[in-house]
C-alpha cells in the first residue's frame, strides 16, 4: 500500500472515531419531549380572592378598628364613586375620603383610582377591605381590572419600584 493510501486510511479511521453516536441522546429526547409537552403550561393561571357579603354573627365587613376604614367603590359605566365607612370615625373624616373619578382616558380612570386608594391607605394604614359595587352592565374584565387597581400599586421608594398593598380583601356586592 502506498504511503498516500495509508495516510488516507488513517485519516478516515480518525474521522470515523470523531463522530459521536447521537442516537441514544435522540432516544432520550424523543421520550422527554412528549412528557414535557403533556405537562407544559401554555397559559399561566392565578387567582384573586373575593367574597360576597354574608350575614354572620360576630362577623362584619365594616372596619372595627378606630384607625381603619372600609372603602366602598361604586363602579358605574362613566365614573367611580368612592366612599369610606367605619364604625368609629366621624362623618366629617369619612367625607374627606369621598370622591368621584370619571372613567375615561387611556386607563379608564384606573390610575387616578389607584392614586386615591393609595392616599386613603396611607391615611389609614390598617385598612384592608374594599367593597366593590359594580353596575349590572359592567363587564367582568373591567371588574377584575378595578380589583387589581385597588388591591396593590407600584410605588417608587428609594429609587426602586416596590409593591404596596392597598386593600387586598375584596368584597363584591350588587346594587339592590
Amino acid at each position: 500500500m502506498a504511503l498516500g493510501d495509508r495516510r488516507r486510511l488513517g485519516m478516515g479511521a480518525y474521522a470515523q472515531d470523531e463522530n459521536v453516536n447521537l442516537v441514544p441522546i435522540m432516544n432520550l429526547f424523543v421520550v422527554l419531549i412528549p412528557f414535557l409537552l403533556m405537562s407544559a403550561a401554555f397559559f399561566n393561571i392565578s387567582v384573586i380572592n373575593a367574597s360576597v357579603p354574608a350575614l354572620q354573627k360576630e362577623k362584619t365587613d365594616l372596619a372595627k378598628s378606630d384607625v381603619a376604614v372600609t372603602m366602598m367603590v361604586r363602579m358605574k359605566p362613566d365614573a367611580f364613586t368612592i366612599t369610606a365607612s367605619s364604625d368609629t370615625l366621624p362623618r366629617s373624616e369619612l367625607d374627606k375620603l369621598r370622591t368621584e373619578i370619571p372613567r375615561r382616558g387611556e386607563t379608564m380612570g384606573l390610575k387616578e383610582f389607584s392614586d386615591h386608594m393609595l392616599a386613603c391607605k396611607q391615611r389609614y394604614p390598617k385598612s384592608e377591605t374594599m367593597l366593590l359595587v359594580p353596575d349590572a352592565g359592567i363587564e367582568y374584565q373591567d371588574v377584575i381590572a378595578v380589583m387589581d387597581a385597588g388591591r396593590w400599586v407600584k410605588v417608587q421608594q428609594d429609587g426602586s419600584t416596590v409593591r404596596y398593598d392597598l386593600f387586598p380583601n375584596v368584597v363584591i356586592s350588587g346594587m339592590l
Binding site: 397559559f43 399561566n44 393561571i45 392565578s46 387567582v47 384573586i48 380572592n49 373575593a50 367574597s51 360576597v52 354574608a54 349590572a136 377584575i144 380589583m147 363584591i172 350588587g174
Partner: peptide, 21 residues
Amino acid sequence: YKVMKTAAMAGYPNFRFAVLK
C-alpha cells in the same frame, strides 16, 4: 353576581376568580 349570590346562598361565600396572568 347571580352565580356568586347563588353560591353564597348555598354556603360558599368565598371565591377565587381564575384569571390569566
